[in-house]
Design a protein around this nucleic acid. Structure first.
Lengths: 126, 126
DNA sequence: CCTCCTTTTAGGATTGATTCCTAAAAGGAT
DNA sequence: ATCCTTTTAGGAATCAATCCTAAAAGGAGG
């Protein structure tokens, strides 16, 4: 485990934020200025493949990384892109699975809303 | 409504396939060889904004377009990328909504599996 | 079927997230 | 310290998607 990978994993696993690769790159460079962008992408991919973190593809926006690798739904703000974790609706998935012929190997459930912060300000935000 | 837009909408709405912009571009050019790729993208975006079709963002792959604009889950093959529509699990969504403070403005549920065709062939496919 | 004005198109350049490439540096046994 | 493997830095390359611009097409009056 190189210092670079440890730093990157530390940033993702330390907080519940779901950051983009670029945000992680900026935070990491504050501690290791020579860190290359490609190294961040490669290590994030590695950590995902090892099952330590999870990658969240976002519509019309860069992917975000979740320190919680297990499957669970996400609540996404349509304005600012902020993401929150939700509890897995076991019953719902079981009932859907019951109607299907083959096994479900994974799922991705995103629920969209306008977060309190964005609802407050009348602005259009990101 | 220009001939180009009618052609593009016709291709998406005619079949239950969930095609990529590139596939739609190829099919459309068979009938109108001068059609530009940018025109396909612009019109697909327009049709989505008008609510006539729906855009499906796919992980690590180009977006696909669904002739059914209403919200519903999708069953996605992890090998070949083929997409099928599923019925909306009203109860599931209602129970999730009940636990949240604000209104859900939309959702995206993808269930992953290996489709029968891909399961059959032992191959690695796309 | 002219005219004028607005919208759309073709074609190609551009963008932006992400991946790939290569020589140099770091790991990490022994 | 040595040797071999893995990883990194830095920058080029990729690719879906968007943007740009001059030319073409709509289309409302007449």
């Amino acid at each position: 485990m190189t210092r670079q990978r440890e730093l990157i994993y530390g940033i993702v696993s330390a907080a519940p934020e779901h950051r983009t690769a670029e945000e992680i790159y900026d935070l990491a460079r504050a501690q290791m200025p020579s860190l290359a962008r490609g190294t961040v992408y490669r290590n994030l991919g590695l950590l995902v493949r090892e099952g330590l973190i999870r990658k969240l593809e976002m519509p019309e926006a860069p992917a975000r990384y979740d320190r919680e690798p297990g499957p669970h739904p996400h609540l996404v703000c349509q304005r600012c892109g902020r993401v929150e974790d939700l509890a897995t609706p076991e019953a719902l998935l079981a009932s859907i699975q019951a109607d299907l012929p083959g096994p479900i190997t994974g799922y991705d459930l995103k629920l969209y809303h306008i977060c309190p912060a964005c609802r407050g300000s009348g602005k259009d935000g990101v």
